Simulated scan of single mutants.
Amino acid sequence: MMSFFDEKPAHLTLADGLQLAYHRSSGALPGVVFLGGFTSDMTGIKACALERWCRKRNRAFLRFDYSGHGASGGKFAEGTIGRWSQDVLAVLDRLTEGPQILVGSSMGAWLMLLTALARPDRIAGLLGLACAVDFTEYLLWERLDETLRERLHRERVIRLPSPYGEPYIIAWDLIEEAKQHRLLDQPKLPITCPVRLIHGMNDTDVPWRISLQVAERLTGSDVRLILLKDGEHTLSREQDLVVLTHTLQDLLEGC
């Protein structure tokens, strides 16, 4: 018997002709939209676990691939934070209706904050996992030595080893364009919806204090930071998923 995870994705055609692949299930509102991380796709453990959880509860759910990711069109090396942020807005505007809770993982948590700033009336809550706000600076640029920086500037695109499998593709345009979307440079982030941030204290990619800095800047009062002392960056262990779904349930009950 075919599982819903075996279904082929639908596609949303953007104004420039590029297509974004997505899976959507109907149900009660607020709906849940999952935003994946840098180089990740919508077939990951957290995305599929959340879809299964939402389907069991008849909760509307959507997962998708950014341009240049997974089953979507486009070239990864041409992606930027601004471009992927526009992908999220297109999906939110055209594939969902009513209030939504955004669940953002790593880079997806940066994009969920940008989305909440752009569409405050559509967002019922935010749930960030290993929030990688401004990661292009401290996770990419600052980890390059002078030789690699010069090579990146010259070649525009370089590939670096990744502990998660395929090499990281780092583009000069990604680093430069991201400066327009930095959030930690701002003293306040005018986001007032409920926000939950989950971060592992054993995260060797994105320090848990990044989530703390985000929490401090949010203007809303309903903000909670949940630290998992033994949690790592992916937050995909069974015990991590339990914390994730319990936290999502808490958000939904408050809507």
Rank of each mutant, 00 (worst) to 15 (best):
V157T: 10
N202R: 14
I123N: 00
P30W: 06
N202D: 14
L148Y: 06
R119I: 11
L241I: 13
L95N: 10
G125D: 04
V103R: 01
D16C: 00
S106L: 06
S3M: 10
A116W: 06
L92E: 00
W110P: 07
L95S: 07
D250V: 07
Q100G: 00
E176V: 15
R83I: 15
I45P: 06
L184P: 03
Q100V: 10
S25E: 10
K8G: 07
R209P: 00
P167V: 09
G231I: 08
G73C: 06
K229D: 15
P9N: 09
V214Y: 03
G27L: 00
K188P: 04
D93W: 09
F34M: 06
T80M: 07
T136F: 12
L95H: 07
K75Y: 14
M2S: 14
M201H: 11
L95G: 09
D121I: 00
L144Y: 02
T192L: 06
T247L: 12
L244W: 07
G44Q: 05
L144Q: 07
Q213S: 13
P194K: 01
G98Y: 00
M201F: 08
S25F: 05
Q213R: 13
K8T: 14
G98N: 00
P161F: 00
S25D: 12
G17F: 03
H199C: 11
A49E: 11
W110S: 14
L14I: 12
K188H: 11
D222R: 14
L126D: 01
G108S: 03
A71V: 01
S3L: 12
E238S: 14
D41H: 14
G44P: 08
D134C: 11
F76S: 11
R209D: 14
L228T: 03
E150L: 05
K179N: 04
V33I: 15
P99D: 05
R57L: 07
Q19S: 15
I226F: 05
V32S: 01
V243E: 08
R196H: 08
G231F: 03
I158F: 03
T234V: 13
A21I: 05
L127M: 11
A130E: 04
H181K: 02
L189P: 10
L251Q: 00
D93P: 04
R182T: 11
Y168F: 15
S106M: 09
T147Q: 10
A130N: 01
